[in-house]
Design a protein around this nucleic acid. Structure first.
Length: 779
DNA sequence: CGGCCCCGCGTTTTT
DNA sequence: CGCGGGGCCG
């Protein structure tokens, strides 16, 4: 062993390290010093991926065995790209690196070690839909009020617990958790949690959180297994460390104990996943965990203009929690950040699409130079419509993933059930698809019996006397046929190619016939989606063959990671040169020449749930920071004054974040950007704009002290919650339509405060302050 | 048991 | 507005 290592070591001098020549001094340092605990604080656009890539490439060039390097990334796509880049530097051996997301890497390890935890190695990974469905049936089974025990909220409580390694028993004993639940009148969450874990276990299933939780359990209860992986992984690298949660933190900590070659890379300013349990403290406390650590700060931004970097700095400075760093750009100063005001959400789409086609024409840009980023997926539609009208090609990331579509989930459920008969969610999904006369009544009998006998549905169907379960002859016969159908595939799972196998299943189960029969547009598109899945299987098969894996490439291999796949992992080449539409969250790590950041309104960005607490608001601000720092050359921010929400028009207030950008980096010339009249179908009245925003914008730091302009009176329109509390009985106010009046009464609490106002002309009206746009005339 | 219709509810964000 | 769930009827 030693001899080989020495031989490889001695060869290293011969290996060309030309690839290091383009690095800056500090980047080079971070690449070359790959031993010992290392923290790399990498500001936005500072070449973080480069450092990570070359750090690994450099190790491999020095003779480090790729099998001993574990590199954890945030998305599968990031992992694949990094692997590709390393391959191009050091060659084929890069493919032996352990590189992937926490979830996919540890799912792999858990499959290998499954028996130690009492799971089958073929365990199913439940996605969010599956988890919710399980919880829903538990809540029903326990006769709890579904209005009080809302599935989503129960799920996030359980998820929170799992991410913090709190077992059901510990949950019941945790006074802080129990207190919160009691306050929400949900005292039985710990019981639900317990049942949920049992049900998943009986179904041979792990949810996303279990992949991390059970890895911890595995390492805690099986020191030999821990020791094995500690020895395997001589070098561990973690990207986006600021977004790791407790469970992930502990996995990394334990695994790196032996070799202590742990390198974490991240940027506290870009921590945006606390809603799913990420702990910004992990990166802030790294120095306490490893006092002997080396620190590298990548502060130069190679991506964006000075204006964008400085603007972004001015935003993030408003946050209290952060590691000090001095992000700067040596690129050109660049244009100021433009602000677009739209009267409606539709017009916002129109303006943005117009601005894009304008830039395309003026600046020789390509479609791929543009991105439109929004806070919530629901906003995409407007921009799709606007871009389509202008014949601008676009692609959407996120939203309903391919694998979430019904027809795909149905097909996958067949495969899941065939490979893991215990998978109750898969069973429930397909037992009557295509329709074979097995209805709700039969299914709930089976579920009850399974719960009563502490087992899964499949066991009941195949082993219990079904007449005792309360089922009749016809139902029993149909169930028998279904079970036979599923069992019939058993023999060829591990002998047939994945594609052929799946096709047989789809045919024999009647899925293909069912989809072909539907001649509606949706039916056709569902069939095409299924074809897409089959193409995906074929592609998987070909890739596996190419990398020399043992034949045949079987369906279980494909299925292993399906739940962890996202659309971003499989971009089609024809989609390359298109405008990108995505949420700010999914834009993390990406960059675009020209960036459009849309929907900058209170209660949208920052979101309505988040402007309450200081912590949530700081996370929203980091999200805003992430968004702005995606831009290389130009950034444009837009907001609408009215927007459709749940089918109703609501009026919107520009986001506080716009005002937080240092005004010297912002171009407020909202109206003259594209000519004044060409687009303004809805802009006949501009009383809105005069009242609303410009006057405030002038005084960036002064919160609510607005300098009156001669023409237009003080513009403190009462529409954000902070301002509402200023209204008092007896004040004189002005309303757009009703004119002047006096406040006679107030009721409710912000933001739902109602005011009764006696208007001089219009008479007495009761108005919701958040919509009424009242202006205080005399206090 | 299956299909249709109506009602109610929701929107952060993702592995 | 769009989806999913529940209820009702054939």
């Amino acid at each position: 062993m030693h001899g080989v290592a020495t031989f490889v070591e001695s060869k290293k001098k011969a290996v060309s390290k030309e690839f290091l020549s383009g690095l800056s001094e500090v980047q080079l340092q971070a690449v070359e010093n790959y031993k010992g605990p290392t923290l790399v604080i990498a500001g936005a656009g500072s070449g973080k991926t480069r450092v990570l890539t070359y750090r690994i490439a450099n190790m491999l060039a020095d003779g480090v065995n790729p099998h001993s390097v574990l590199s954890l990334t945030f998305t599968n796509k990031a992992a694949a790209e990094m692997k590709e880049r390393i391959k191009s530097v050091v060659g084929e051996k890069a493919k032996y690196l352990w590189m992937g997301t926490f979830h996919s890497i540890f799912a792999r390890i858990l499959r290998t070690e499954a028996d130690k935890l009492g799971y089958p190695s073929t365990f199913t990974i439940y996605d969010t839909t599956d988890s919710r469905s399980v919880l829903k049936s538990i809540i029903k089974e326990m006769n709890l009020d579904e209005q009080v025990y809302k599935v989503n909220e129960v799920h996030s409580r359980i998820s929170l617990a799992k991410n913090n390694l709190v077992t059901p028993a510990a949950y019941a004993n945790s006074s802080s958790l129990v207190t919160v639940d009691a306050a929400n009148r949900r005292p039985r969450i710990a019981d639900i949690y317990k049942k949920y874990m049992q049900k998943c276990y009986l179904s041979g299933a792990m949810d996303f959180d279990d992949l991390l939780l059970n890895t911890n359990v595995l390492f805690r209860d099986h020191p030999d297994v821990l020791n094995k992986y500690q020895s395997i992984f001589s070098y561990i690298l973690v990207d986006e460390y600021q977004d790791t949660n407790m469970a992930q933190y502990l996995i990394v900590k334990k695994l790196s104990e032996q070799h202590k070659n742990l390198c974490v890379v991240g940027d506290d300013a870009q921590s945006i996943y606390s809603f799913r349990g990420a702990k910004i403290e992990n990166i802030l406390n790294f120095r306490n965990d490893y006092p002997e650590y080396q620190l590298f700060k990548l502060e130069q931004n190679y991506r964006s203009t000075q204006t964008i970097v400085n603007a972004a700095n001015s935003i993030i400075q408003k946050n209290s929690k952060q590691i000090k760093k001095n992000a700067f750009s040596a690129k050109e100063v660049g244009d100021r950040i433009k602000v677009l005001k739209a009267y409606t959400d539709q017009e916002e789409g129109f303006l943005v699409a117009g601005a894009i086609s304008d830039l395309l024409y003026r600046e020789h840009c390509e479609y791929l130079d543009f991105a439109i980023l929004y806070r919530t997926n629901a906003q995409s539609r407007i921009f799709e419509d606007a871009l389509r009208k202008k014949n601008i090609p676009y692609k959407i990331y996120g939203g309903l993933s391919f694998y979430q579509r019904k027809e795909i989930k149905d097909m996958v459920a067949y495969l899941r059930l065939i490979i893991n008969h215990s998978d109750d969610e898969a069973f429930k999904r397909i037992v009557n698809y295509p329709a074979r006369g097995i209805g709700d009544t039969t299914l709930s009998r089976l579920e009850e019996a399974a719960a009563a006998n502490n087992t899964n549905i499949w066991t009941i169907v195949t082993q219990a006397p079904l007449d005792k379960v309360g089922l009749k002859g016809a139902a029993i016969k149909k169930l028998g046929e279904f079970a036979e159908l599923i069992q019939g595939f058993q023999a060829s799972i591990y002998t047939e190619n994945a594609y052929d196998f799946a096709l047989t299943v789809a045919t024999q189960a009647g899925i293909i016939k069912d989809l072909k029969e539907d001649k509606t547009n949706e039916g056709i598109s569902r069939f095409e989606n299924l074809e897409g899945l089959f193409n995906g299987i074929k592609e998987f098969e070909e890739n596996a063959k190419e990398s020399g894996e043992p034949l045949p490439i079987t369906i279980d291999r494909f299925l292993e990671n399906v739940a962890l796949l996202t659309d971003a992992d499989s971009e089609k080449p024809e989609d390359k040169n298109k405008v990108s539409l995505m949420t700010v969250h999914s834009a993390k790590g990406l960059e675009f020449k020209h960036l459009f950041l849309v929907g900058l309104e209170e209660n949208l960005f920052p979101g309505q749930m988040t402007s309450q607490s200081q912590e949530d608001l700081e996370e929203e601000r980091r999200l805003f920071y992430v968004a702005v720092t995606r831009a290389e050359v130009s950034a444009t921010i837009s907001y609408a004054q009215t927007r459709y929400k749940w089918g109703n028009v609501t009026s919107c207030v520009p986001s506080r974040f716009i005002k937080e950008i240092d005004s010297s980096y912002v171009d407020w010339n909202e109206d003259s950007l594209f000519g004044t009249s060409s687009h303004s179908t809805a802009s006949s009245s501009n009383s809105y704009n005069l009242q609303g925003f410009k006057a405030k914008a002038g005084s960036v730091s002064a919160q609510r002290t607005v300098a009156p302009t001669p023409q237009h009176r003080p513009a403190s329109v009462i529409s954000d919650p902070a301002d509402m509390t200023e209204v008092e009985v007896g004040m004189e106010v002005e309303h757009e339509r009703f004119g002047f009046g006096k406040v006679e009464a107030l009721e409710g609490t912000a933001p739902e405060i109602k005011a009764t106002v006696n208007f001089t002309v219009a008479g007495t009206k009761t108005l919701l302050l958040k919509f009424a746009k009242l202006r205080i005339v005399k206090r």
